[in-house]
Design a protein around this nucleic acid. Structure first.
Lengths: 206, 206, 206, 206
DNA sequence: GATGAATGAGATTTCATTCAT
DNA sequence: AATGAATGAAATCTCATTCAT
């Protein structure tokens, strides 16, 4: 507990934190163990003492992200029955999550690029545990059955909804440039409404 | 053309082709000059003779992708005035493009992850040259002005449209797993209609 | 004796025992302090507390072997005057000793390979103290003087005798394979007689 | 052919030669790739270029020894039918071989110490190919059948013969010290006769 | 254009040893 | 006597790049 080395947090945690940043910035192959060590102000060997290998450290980083995200899922996602209340929550949720886990996006993108079996399994599991996909699908299907929504393929609709949301987060820098968006924050805020509006308007029967 | 080594294509082209694959699979840092050489069945030094450095080769790969994509843009994107005819074309266009340039997605994702200045500029330029974004925006805005479409923010709408399309392509493997999609091809075909339908239905005034 | 950690023997002794095995298996350079610690179920630092360095531990291991061997020499080697009784005793002695000190052979071999000054001195001293070589030489020379044995060079003869005995022990695995010996135990038993027989028959005058 | 670097032999051969020495002196674990590189006056990476790993280099060293030894076996070992002519040849052969392949003894000893499966297989094969063991055994058995030799177990006898010969070579430094042998060369010369004499005298019927 | 060999800098990993408690 | 964490030096190995031919 007492900080003999004058640094906050214990070594393993500090390594993990720095590693999260390093892997986010440079990807697995571009990341440097040396750099992690010096940024964490520890001897390189400590990384191996605590994590055994660069690869295991990388997995630990991914796990730490996923754990946090799962927490987020579990605590922030309440399931109001009304889509007009529910959907904006999801959008806010993503915004908050990516804010909290900034480093996750690049890691996610690169995993995607590499075929990312690790991610794939982790996601599948998370989806199943949280029930996110099922719940969403059921709501849409219920809405259709009740005649409130048009008879669309609910899976396609959900993917569309997720896509229109996440895509902007993933491609932020490019989008801001290409579409000459001056105030990212404001645009995000506006986006929340527009996306939900478009989606609901696109679905609702009338 | 001369085939003293029994291989088709000239060396520089063969290197480029193999490099495209290598960079797609492993990213810049993960790619190996050695591996490119041996797969292209040439001596490593030839890569330097033709491309001067790994980085320059990487840029050449990106350029080759962008050139092809620009070609695609220019030839495949006709501008029918009717959104109901126009939008499906865009969707088909992306499908065809990613089919043709499979290796581009991972490179794009990793560039995105890395902050990707190269891509950013290239995209900006391409957008401007092709006028893709402007044309699209004008059409939407015209529709709104004419009272055919609801008064939405056209930029947000377009990003949503692009997002719901591209996101599925970028995350194909994960999506197929999470949503238990058995027939990718069929799902893609169906998606074309559903996406356009959702988007138009979401936009149209009534 | 105190067993607060639930292990028998005191720590120093347990370290030594494990170290004997480790050095036997891997040699000095191949041995790992970490592995010794974990096998002895103690903290690595304890090894340094008790033995100060890997090298000193190694020396302790060698000493422990030599001490035991000296004990063996002193207690098991009685000096019957009759060679036909005496020589089989020596052979049995070696068999018993190597059985008791299994780990000694590889250490001995490696010391031999490395020039092994440590061993050399230790052996010289042991020989002198036990008088093993002198006694043996005297017996042979006496036999020659009495006309019972042929006039051979006694040193050469003794080396031959030692050689034909020890060589088999040192090269056991290879010999068993090359000569397709199915039952090592039986072969050893038979060997005792054959070796003594060959040696005596080769020496005796007639 | 032309020595651009002013060194004799090509690099791979020079590495092998130096490595033979290094592994002989220090064993596999004690050997240093750095040292091999600097002694061979080449860049460390060349070792990996030519041999891929320290372990493969080690195997190459062993193979190079075994190849040479096999050559020796094939060229030097003629099979005179008369044991009194044949046996001294074997002894001379070993002397010459160990002279030619000095570095082999320590490697052999350490392989022996380590359980040395590599050696074991190599030896087995060499024995079978050269027919050394079979030929020897047949000669002894023939002598016994003809009544020239006493009815001993021929395998045991051969192991004894090999042992009394090789053991001295393997333990040279210790033996010379313990038995206070002043002139190694002379002792070796004398040994040749004494060993054969003892063996034959021990075997011959009368 | 083409090759095999070479290089230098640096990457990951290991390991004996010590420190603080 | 005992521990977990820490260290520094060095070990093996890699890789983009260049040289000589």
């Amino acid at each position: 507990m007492s900080k003999k080395n004058g640094l906050d947090k214990n070594t393993a945690a500090r390594i993990l934190e720095v590693a999260r940043d390093e892997f986010a910035k440079y990807g697995f192959d571009g990341a440097r163990v040396d750099r992690i060590a010096s940024r964490a102000k520890i001897n390189k060997a400590m990384i191996y003492y605590h994590y055994r290998s660069k690869e295991k450290l990388y997995h630990a980083v991914i796990q730490s992200h996923l754990n946090r995200i799962r927490e987020f899922f579990e605590t922030s996602l309440d399931t109001s029955p009304d889509p007009e209340a529910f959907l904006p929550q999801i959008v806010s949720f993503w915004d908050a999550m990516f804010q909290d886990r900034k480093g996750f996006i690049p890691i996610f993108l690169r995993e995607l690029a590499g075929g990312g079996q690790v991610m794939q399994k982790a996601f599948e599991q998370m989806m199943k545990e949280s029930g996110f996909n099922k719940v969403l699908k059921q709501k849409i299907d219920a809405g259709i059955a009740a005649g409130q929504l048009r008879p669309v393929n609910s899976t396609q609709a959900i993917i569309s909804f997720i896509g229109m949301n996440l895509f902007y987060f993933l491609t932020l820098p490019i989008m801001n440039t290409v579409w000459e968006i001056p105030d990212e924050k404001e645009f995000k805020e506006q986006r929340k409404k527009e996306v939900v509006d478009l989606f609901l308007y696109g679905l609702k029967a009338r």
